[in-house]
């Protein structure tokens, strides 16, 4: 019991506090607008959202885990790491074009790439590229609903933006949060307790030794 509470307390970080505070605000707002019914309605929609993605999410986690294992950290650090420069920004920006699927699959995969030692700039480029240049989004959704002309006009207008967003993002991150956590580049040690990096690194170096 005590260890359970302890491990729960250990989970509390900036991200969790931020999300928790927003949930509280949203619950209060829903309560103020429509009472308990509105809150329940919101929770029901959360439930149906979860219901529609849980299977895909599990598959996404598995894919992320396999990719984390199949692509060595050293390779990710070399191609997308903090010192990968413009090349890292370009690779991050444009591999997003062929990344299929909704967030339930791309997010576990991007988290795996991040924890394997990718830099802030390439990750931001990848996130931006995914949102702007995903081929699946263009072909499956936008062209059928809106036609080729307007969908292609948007796509072309967005082509050069992800690397720029990555570059500016890395600079802003450094300015606001200080030097980024170094992951995967110094023997799998991490200097920051943020995201998946803190839990996955030790295990990954173990598993790599097993190969």
């Amino acid at each position: 019991m005590l260890t359970g509470i302890k491990s729960l307390l250990k989970k509390i970080d900036g991200t969790l506090i931020f999300l928790g505070a927003l949930v509280l605000v949203a619950v209060i707002a829903a309560q103020a607008i429509g009472g308990g019914d509105k809150v329940l309605d919101g929770l029901e929609r959360a439930g149906s959202l979860f219901e529609s993605v849980w299977l895909r999410l599990i598959l996404g986690f598995i894919l992320g885990g396999m990719i984390r294992l199949l692509i060595p950290s050293a390779l990710i650090a070399r191609w997308l790491g903090h010192t990968s420069g413009i090349r890292g920004l370009l690779i991050g920006s444009y591999i997003a074009i062929i990344m299929p699927g909704g967030p339930y699959i791309t997010m576990p995969v991007i988290a795996a790439i991040y924890s394997a030692g990718a830099g802030i700039g390439p990750i931001i480029a990848l996130l931006t590229g995914r949102a702007l240049l995903g081929l699946q989004m263009l072909i499956v959704w936008q062209i059928p609903f809106l036609g080729v002309e307007i969908s292609m006009a948007r796509y072309i207008a967005c082509l050069v933006l992800p690397p720029i967003a990555g570059m500016v993002g890395a600079a802003i991150y450094k300015l606001v949060f200080g030097p980024p956590p170094v992951v995967g580049e110094i023997g799998g040690q991490t200097t920051d307790a943020d995201p998946p990096s803190d839990t996955t690194d030790d295990a990954s170096s173990d598993s790599e030794n097993e190969v």
């Binding site: 970080d13 900036g14 991200t15 931020f18 999300l19 967030p103 339930y104 997010m107 576990p108 991007i110 988290a111 991040y114 802030i120 990750i123 931001i124 996130l127 931006t128 967003a165 500016v168 993002g169 802003i172 991150y173 606001v176 949060f177 943020d194 995201p195 998946p196």
Partner: peptide, 17 residues
């Protein structure tokens, strides 16, 4: 999606940019 998987810092930085 972004904040749960990547943490608030990097997700918010991308958003602001």
């Amino acid at each position: 999606w972004a904040i749960p998987f990547l943490g608030a810092k990097i997700a918010l930085t991308r958003y602001i940019v």
